[in-house]
Write a protein that binds this DNA or RNA. Structure first.
Lengths: 202, 202
DNA sequence: ACGATCCCATGACATTTGTCATGCCGGGAT
DNA sequence: ATCCCGGCATGACAAATGTCATGGGATCGT
């Protein structure tokens, strides 16, 4: 019995390469591919895969949203998240949205096939080094407003932009950013935003 | 006669997948792999590949530096740069450092093997869409100091940090950043730095 | 030699950003 | 009920950041 896999990854060459890698395995078969987050559910409903292998960074909605949607519309399909190291913070969100596992592109290629088999067998598949950093990162220390303010000032937006977007006084936004900066131990809201993003606290 | 290829890419799983992809081709053989920029030259000297396939983003010195070094120490080896879309600006630097081609991870997987064959045949291999955006981006409008100042303030460094690093007055750094901001039409040095980086003007 | 032009450097000034003290309000704990 | 605490909001103040006018020096064309 071969495992049927849906592969979602936006970079065509990487997608093709992963497909080639998995095709070397006798018991694994790629039955669908997606290049965008919003292609995942339709293609999965069509192809009925046993496992969905989802990259996080994709256009058209990220892999975690796709995972949650897939959980609803095709619950028997196991979801494996595949992403770059340094995004350990996504682990929590991924497991909350019902993913069966979380693999790193930095891990050896052999772990991909074995991860798929273990997911099919009902195991939770989490890269050990990733679990460690996720635990040490811990829970977000940011309050709701602080998180919003940071997120809104991600791409060099000015304070008044953020204030307008959140319907707040500029002073208030400054304050939220200030406390966020202090909590994260950075010198700028820029550093703070990058750090929070990296830890998945956005 | 098979083409011997060195493959440099930091993410192990992607590296393994690309290796699998190329192994499907009868006339292509992976003879060496590198996970870091500074591993490229030693491994190339050892394995004597016909083509080096280099990712740009790598720890231990980026792929373009590796390309230049390889050009010196193993000139008969053709260099192919492989990178993510949106980094079109690197194209100029890549060709200046003697690369034979520039491929996109967003391109179809089939182009990888054909790109390698064309490089061996002496052709220049450049993704057409990439060439267009590189041309439309044009030459960098930044002067030397402006570029240095922007680069040094990339990760939320404060002005005085930059000033110290460049042995300049704070006012001078502010001025360079200011002109850079005006030239790039942004509101922050943050936006300016991101834009310049994306265009390869760093 | 001369001016024109460009890059670089600097300090003065205005604006933006970060920090602080203060107060409001709702949800436990006593 | 009362107290305490944490999140939210605000304005005053200090520090960092961006803009401007100015001048020195190198290079190029005339």
């Amino acid at each position: 019995m071969t495992v049927q896999v849906l592969l979602a990854e936006d970079q065509a060459m990487v997608r093709g390469a992963l497909s080639a890698l998995l095709s070397l395995e006798d018991d694994i078969e790629i039955v669908a591919e997606a290049a965008r987050g919003d292609e995942v559910v339709p293609k999965a409903l069509d192809a009925r895969p046993d496992v969905a292998l989802l990259d996080i960074e994709m256009p058209g909605g990220d892999g975690l949203d796709a995972a949650a949607a897939l959980r609803k519309s095709l619950p028997e399909c196991r979801v494996l998240i595949l992403t770059t190291f340094g995004r350990a913070g996504y682990l929590r969100r991924a497991l909350e949205s019902g993913a069966a596992g979380f693999l790193l592109k930095d891990a050896p290629a052999a772990e991909l096939a074995s991860g798929i088999r273990r997911a099919v067998a009902g195991e939770r598949v989490v890269d050990p080094s990733l679990a460690v950093t996720a635990l040490s990162d811990g829970e977000s220390p940011l309050t709701g407003r602080e998180r919003e303010s940071l997120a809104a000032s991600m791409n060099g937006a000015t304070i008044s932009d953020v204030a307008r977007k959140l319907y707040l006084s500029e002073g208030t936004v400054r304050n939220h950013l200030s406390t966020a900066i202090k909590k994260l131990g950075t010198r700028n809201r820029v550093e703070a935003a990058r750090l929070a993003e990296r830890k998945g606290w956005l």
